[in-house]
Structures are given as structure tokens and as C-alpha cells.
Design a binder for these strands. Structure first.
Lengths: 252, 252
DNA sequence: CGCAGGATTGATATCAATCAATAACGGTGG
DNA sequence: CCACCGTTATTGATTGATATCAATCCTGCG
């Protein structure tokens, strides 16, 4: 519950040595783009596992790119029921809504310790004026988020419990792999079955029983706050899902 | 199932007389923006009620803005189960994903007869280069779609059947009102309870029973392929939903 | 008149939620 | 070291919500 504050560390990672560059899935920036990003970036910011980074209804003056760590976006109903909307991984943009609209309509919490690259919301206009190619990338990222939400909605609305779980785990393992967060099939993030339940729109107990079924079928193994994927192909088949594209994607 | 083709009617509505201008909720375009849109626009296109405008997995060379009529975006599972993702109303942008990515990941169908303003996907890059303010608006619209999907996901994942129905109907009535599609509380669109069911993630039968409950409580009245809102405030309260913002929004 | 699509209803089946325990584990204070 | 927690995972029993099945009833239309 501790409210994280930006640390005063500035440009610990210069943009031309951005730690995200090592991921093949992320497209390279041109020299002029990197130059713009260097001006755009105002600092870095660290969040502890479990801390809340963005609170629904507030208006954050910042826009972030995740440099490392895992988090998730969620919304809650007045009585506390929670729905996890999506997970946030390295290379993802966080807080765009808040920069465009009056306020954020969802909250964000860190699953692991996280490191962010910080931008001022005001300079977003400048980005659009001065560097159209990056503006295009921002829009691309927004469209990608929409695409993921579409699939989640299909999942929660029309897939059965076991199909949903199969979809979620193969979705997460594919996203994880693309940013080096999958080792021997294990998704390198500490998340609980409560998180899974609130993503799938199921109760905790039923989520547990569903994961056990997948385990009994030999498709996964749940182990200490994480999940080991045993048979990704079968998981995808159970879910009736095509998988993520393997093409490079932008980041800012 | 008939595949609609663009009609050869060009600029029936010049951009400076855009029929969308009459809606207060839509922000005015500057002279230079209107000038750009005139060049950007390549024609108009009409779709019949029930026709499929975009097919999942294909790659449409066009980007559309809805001038009139209602439609919906949806995805299906291999065995045919369908999830409606969102509804499409005048002023909405359609096909952005297809312009940015390789292919569309959802389908679009017309609920009523519809009229679209047509743009070439290639000129989107030009839009970003030449008119940053419109590029910003495109991104704004993408973020707005994301916001709606977030709320739908919360609904399908965590709201009960009656809460979901209450949310959907107040959501639709508010969107309808903003573009003159609400008359005496009636949502002016021909949709069936099957559409409602596939939006809520419920079966058709249960949807019918749920709507009947709302009707018994005096909150709505279902009547010939549409819905009359009797008490919007109570609907919103049942759903635990804040409602849509009333601020002007962009369109392109 | 008969037919098709949509709406409605009752009976039954199934899935998932809830309730209630227990187990396994790490951390903490004595 | 051990007793005591709190968190997470697990399991069985029961309840409740929603799906499915099967009719029937409209209403517009050829």
C-alpha cells in the first residue's frame, strides 16, 4: 500500500543504451528517434513488488515505459470485486489514458519489483509534433493493447473455465518469452492463483480446481507462485487460440 | 452474408459539411484539419443492415469513420461461439488495427444500414506526418476504445447477469444519446436479444429472463428489437457504473 | 395460410460459487 | 529452538446461478 515516489536517479540508463534493446522482438530506434527519446525522458522510477503505481480516478502527470519487472492493470466494482484487465511487461507503455484523458480509469499494481522510464505527459504533444514515427508507434501500442483486450473479452465471455485458463497461461508464456521472462517453460513472475482468478473472472476455488485439471492433463505445473508450461501447443489447442504474432513491435 | 462493395459515390458529403458536425459531443475541426480530411477522404461507402464489413483475419486496405448507422465488432471461437466486443456508432473509427497491423483480429457487422467515410490505409502515415493534431485524435480514439473494453471486461468478468444487463443498457443509451440516437428513452437501433446475449457473455435464454427482471423492476422495457430506458439512474446504480464522460471528443 | 425469426416460458442439467476445513510455508517474536 | 501467525494452496460438501432442452407464442410476410 506504500505510495511509491520517483527516485531522483536520472538517466541511469541512457536511451542509446536502453536495456530493452536486447530484445529482438522490439524494433530498433533510429538515431533521431533515440535523440528525441533522450530529451523526452525525464528520469527513472522504481516500484516495489505489491505497490500501487496508478490509482483509478486520479490524474498522473507521467507516462511510463516498463524497463523491467511485471505488473498488472485492473478495475474494481464498488463492493471490491476486482477484474485484472491485462498484465504489463518490459517494453509496455503505461498511463497513456491518463495523458490523453482527464483521468485514469484503471489502476496499476506491481507484481515484482519494477523499473520504469518516466516521461512528462505534457511532452506527448511535442512528440506528436516533432517525431511522427514515434507518434505512430504510440498509436500502434494502443491498438495492440486493444487487440489483447479483445481476446481477453472473448475468453471471459465465451470460453469455459478450462479454456480460459489454457488461454491465459499460453498468452502469458508467449509474452514472457518475447522479453526473456521464460526459462525452461517457467513464467518468471511471482503471481498467485488469486491473480489468475481475477483475470479469468472465476472464483479462487474454482480457479484452483481448474489449474489442477490442466496439471492432471500434463499441460502445466503450478509451482510456488508461478507456472511451468509443459505443453504450450496443447494449451493453445485447448483454448482455441492462434497465439501471438512473432513480428517485431515498437516501443518508446 | 453479401459482401458489400464501396459505391462509387464520392464526396457526397464534403468534409466542411460533414453530417457529424451537428453533434455537440464531437469537437470542431480547424480549417486546416478540415482541409487535410478533404484530401484524406477517398469516398463514401454504404452497407446494408446485416452485412459483414470486416472479416477477422483479412487485411482491409481501408479505414472508415461511421457517418450514420449502428454496427458491432465481434470475435468467434473455432466452434462458432461469438463474443460481441463493442458497438459502433456515428463518429467512431473502424479498421484502425488493420491499418497498423498485418490483419484485423475481429470482424465487423452492420446492425442497421450504415454510411461510412472511407480513407486509404496508406495515407495514415501521411496524416501522422502532416497533421499531428489529427494523429493525436486517432490515438485518443484508440485510448477511448481501450477504456470501453476495460469496462466491458470488468462487466463480463465480475458483474452478475442483472448487473451486466443494466450496465450494457445504460452504456448504450448514453452513447446513443450523444449522437442523437435516443428518443424518449428508446435506443434507436434494431438489435435482438441474441446480440445482447453475445455481448454479456450469457446464454440467450438467460438473457431473456434477465431482461424480464429489469423490466419487472421498471427499469427498462424491451420492445420490438430494441430497448426503452425507463430509469437510467437506477440502471447505473444497479450496475455500479459511473457513466460516460460528457466532454467533447474528437473524431476524424 | 403457413412459415421464419424472434421472444418467452418451464423443466432439468451442469458449471461454478460459496462454505468450511486443512495443509504447507515463511516470517516473527519469545 | 519453537509457538504463533498470515498468506497461499488445496480439498470436499453444498448451494446457487446459468446453461441447455423443449415447447409455445407471437408477428410480419410471401
Amino acid at each position: 500500500m506504500a505510495k511509491p515516489r520517483p527516485l531522483s536517479i536520472k538517466h541511469q540508463h541512457p536511451c542509446d543504451q536502453c536495456p530493452l534493446k536486447k530484445h529482438d522482438i522490439l524494433r530498433d530506434l533510429s538515431a533521431s528517434e533515440t535523440e528525441f527519446m533522450t530529451r523526452f525522458k525525464t528520469g527513472e522510477f522504481q516500484a516495489q513488488a505489491g505497490s500501487t503505481i496508478i490509482v483509478e480516478g486520479t490524474n498522473s502527470p507521467h507516462l511510463y515505459t516498463v524497463l523491467s519487472g511485471w505488473g498488472f492493470r485492473y478495475k474494481t466494482l464498488p463492493d471490491g470485486r476486482r477484474q485484472i484487465l491485462n498484465f504489463i511487461l518490459p517494453g509496455d507503455l503505461v498511463g497513456l489514458q491518463g495523458s490523453l484523458m482527464k483521468e485514469m480509469s484503471h489502476s496499476v499494481e506491481a507484481l515484482s519489483d519494477m523499473m520504469f522510464c518516466v516521461f512528462e505527459r505534457e511532452s506527448l504533444t511535442k512528440l506528436f509534433k516533432e517525431t511522427p514515427s514515434l507518434a505512430y508507434d504510440v498509436t500502434w501500442l494502443a491498438a495492440r493493447e486493444e487487440q489483447m483486450l479483445d481476446e481477453h473479452l472473448l475468453s471471459v465471455g465465451r470460453r469455459t473455465a478450462i479454456e480460459r485458463a489454457a488461454y491465459l497461461i499460453s498468452f502469458l508464456s508467449q509474452r514472457a518469452r518475447r522479453v526473456g521472462q521464460l526459462e525452461d517453460g517457467q513464467i518468471l513472475v511471482p503471481f498467485t492463483q488469486s491473480h489468475v482468478a481475477d483475470t479469468l473472472g472465476l472464483s479462487l476455488v474454482h480457479t484452483n480446481k481448474t489449474l489442477k485439471k490442466l496439471q492432471a492433463r500434463g499441460l502445466i505445473k503450478w509451482s510456488e507462485r508461478s507456472c511451468i508450461v509443459k505443453d504450450e501447443e496443447k494449451l493453445q489447442h485447448v483454448a482455441g487460440w492462434d497465439g501471438l504474432p512473432d513480428t517485431p513491435r515498437p516501443f518508446i
